[in-house]
Design a protein around this nucleic acid. Structure first.
Lengths: 204, 204
DNA sequence: GATCCCTTGTTGACAGTGTCAACCTAGGGA
DNA sequence: TCCCTAGGTTGACACTGTCAACAAGGGATC
């Protein structure tokens, strides 16, 4: 299977991200790894940022596929949600630098395709959340808002951990613990609908 | 008041972060702005990463002070929590590049002082959460875990917004909306202990 | 077949960067 | 007086992103 040069460049960039992080991805190193001249990448990408965006776009597409395959599975909504979170976390653990690229890279020139890919992945995730709501696993509030909250919490837990400030010292709980706590709490939330018995706590 | 050169360098770096983002902070540009030679910063910081860490440390210290002053205020636990989140969000909005530096910078060599500062800020925030728990505003589960979740959600919401993927297109809700939703949900969680209904109506 | 042009690649250059090494210079003990 | 140290300087080096100019090759068109 002959990989086109453009694909080779993207793959090489991804490998460099994995092995040395953001800083290791220099256009010249990528070119060297593929075996072309230091300026060949410019035939395929406008600049360094565009190359990195291509990596991000590819990975976002992959994530979206994972989410969608989970959404179509038979093991139930709650399990799909749990596994989606697990997939995201696993990806972040295996490819921290690439994960950062997807969601939190500051100096990546905004590319149209990248935004679309991010949106598509988010929507696939939203569909799983909606499914959970229909099954009564999650409170029936606005699905996009709820997805935003869940996604933010998962991403935040991942990002703080990857950042490594107060590295797993007693400061921050593990990603899994945080996400598990989130799901636990969401399950016991009083939903406005008739589905769940709500208990108006009278206090003090 | 005569600022020492070291302080001037940190301030200059912070200004450059604000005006041009991570990429704009070059050691030489910082030196130029202060009016010293391109190698003067090396007399005060081991390398570029150390200079950036100094900025982060300074800002973390400032945040910690804010949290602690809020914790000692008389307007109540719920209000302190709300204002803490607000302070964090405001800081992130005003100084996005610096915010990133604090929590999510990948290629910042781990500095001992930086981790300590991050931990201290986190602990100050934890104290506010504990206060909320004592007042019945937050569910009485393990304070550190709960703080981790709240902090992760806030940070995630901020980070996703700053990242600008799927920029405020319908994809992601606003930071404030996400945080408000989080607090709303947490307030209605079935807690084992006694509870109080607090109506902190957030404006628009 | 000859011509043209577009794609993909090349080499060469340039300014700018982080960082190292060597040198300078005041000022304060000994 | 001497010397050490902290702070600052100049000069160099390898490396980077990016621009410009040039070369091969293969379709499409005549």
């Amino acid at each position: 299977m002959t990989e086109t040069t453009k694909e080779q460049l993207v793959s090489a960039a991804a490998q460099l991200l994995d092995s040395g992080g953001q800083g290791a991805v220099t256009l010249r190193a990528v070119a060297r790894r593929v075996g072309v001249s230091h300026n060949a990448p410019y035939r395929h990408f406008r600049d360094r940022s565009a190359l990195l965006s291509a990596v991000a776009e590819r990975d976002l597409e992959q994530l979206r596929r994972e989410f969608e395959s989970l959404a179509g599975e038979g093991s139930g909504a709650a399990e799909a949600l749990r596994q989606s979170a697990g997939a995201l976390i696993a990806y972040a653990r295996e490819h921290p630098a690439r994960y950062r690229l997807l969601f939190s890279d500051p100096d990546l020139t905004p590319q149209p395709g990248l935004g679309d890919a991010a949106l598509a992945a988010f929507e696939a995730f939203t569909r799983i959340v909606s499914w959970c709501q229909r099954e009564g696993v999650l409170p029936s509030i606005d699905a996009v808002s709820l997805t935003g909250l869940i996604y933010a919490a998962i991403h935040g837990a991942i990002d703080l951990q990857l950042g490594g400030r107060a590295s797993d010292a007693k400061g921050l709980a593990s990603i899994d613990a945080t996400v598990a706590l989130l799901f636990d709490l969401l399950r016991t939330v009083e939903t406005p609908g008739p589905r769940r018995r709500t208990q108006t706590g009278r206090g003090e």
